[in-house]
Nucleic acid binder design. Structure first.
Lengths: 165, 165
DNA sequence: GGCAGATATTTCAAACCCAAAATATTTATG
DNA sequence: CATAAATATTTTGGGTTTGAAATATCTGCC
């Protein structure tokens, strides 16, 4: 018996549009929807309250976690955006005086991007407000659901891991 | 004992960076991470396999669900992007022959965007492959977790509802 | 009819984003 | 040492994205 059941079997290649496949597609579309809505809200708040943009904030956040600074390549990997992209964002942060490019000893190709004192101060203040915004936008998210969400999403991240976490 | 625990207490207004607030922030960052990674994978596949882009595919998908066509404003609301944005994407789809702009009876301001036969055919084929990609990227997502994910994310969507779902 | 305000869309400037090519530098290998 | 391959970053070209301003049109009110 059990001959026609597929439990334990690997997924069938030609089995397009199974129920499971459709459920996963719905899940993905829902992730996309929430992601876009929250990102839009945060972008607007950033602009109105802080007169800055989300990508710039993200760069500052990454640098705040690594006080010794990061290379451009480390930044782009951490933020999951392209190399060339980070160049422009860091350029703007430099002109704003929030970060600096420090040459690397013994490697004249690379440079390390670091928060200035002003950048550190600015970010520290803004991070608190930002966390408040997020908490407000997610105020329907119970502790249990938050944990479940994080667990499920981590599973997905880990599976699609290109280099490492 | 148990005197210092805060379980059951309502959220404190001035209590920035409470545990719950931090959990929600982590949840948001995880959503962002998954969203970016999956979007990047899909973008690359779209480019290599279909020689198209994600935004164009999204517009075709919306139009495929509404065979009678949609107004520009309905499109931008549905995709949660700005009005001006849709203009450029539809322009490109028009030159590719996948959609057409049909004037609206009694309202010369508006136009209705509709799939052409070629657009319909193209999308129908690609949608199946796309669903397969998503299912593969989410292959670690069990049916139970998919349902939980959708439920939790819907809660969040509903809370942040500007006009309607 | 005339006209103020609302609505639908496009245009515009600035920023972001990617992939690929270009540049500069370092490392490894003969 | 020379030089091919690898590495780090910037530049480039095409596309996407937003918010605001500009256009065109419609609706309601006098």
């Amino acid at each position: 018996m059990n001959m026609n059941k597929t439990e334990g079997l690997p997924e069938q290649a030609g089995n397009e549009t199974s129920d499971l496949s459709k459920a996963r597609l719905r899940a993905w579309l829902q992730i996309l929807k929430v992601s876009r809505k929250i990102e839009g809200e945060l972008r607007e708040k950033m602009r109105l309250e802080f007169n800055t943009t989300l990508p710039r904030f993200d760069v500052l956040a990454a640098l705040y976690r690594e006080r010794d600074g990061m290379r451009m390549s480390a930044l782009s990997k951490s933020l999951m955006v392209s190399n060339g992209n980070v160049t422009g964002i860091v350029d703007r942060l430099v002109t704003e005086g929030l970060v600096v490019r420090v040459p690397v000893e013994n490697d004249r190709r690379a440079s390390i991007v670091q928060l200035t004192e002003a950048g550190e101060k600015d970010f520290a203040e803004r991070a608190l407000v930002h966390e408040g915004w997020v908490s407000e936008l997610f105020s329907d998210l119970s502790p249990g659901d938050a944990d479940a969400l994080i667990r499920i999403l981590r599973n997905i991240s880990h599976h699609n891991e290109a280099p490492h976490d």
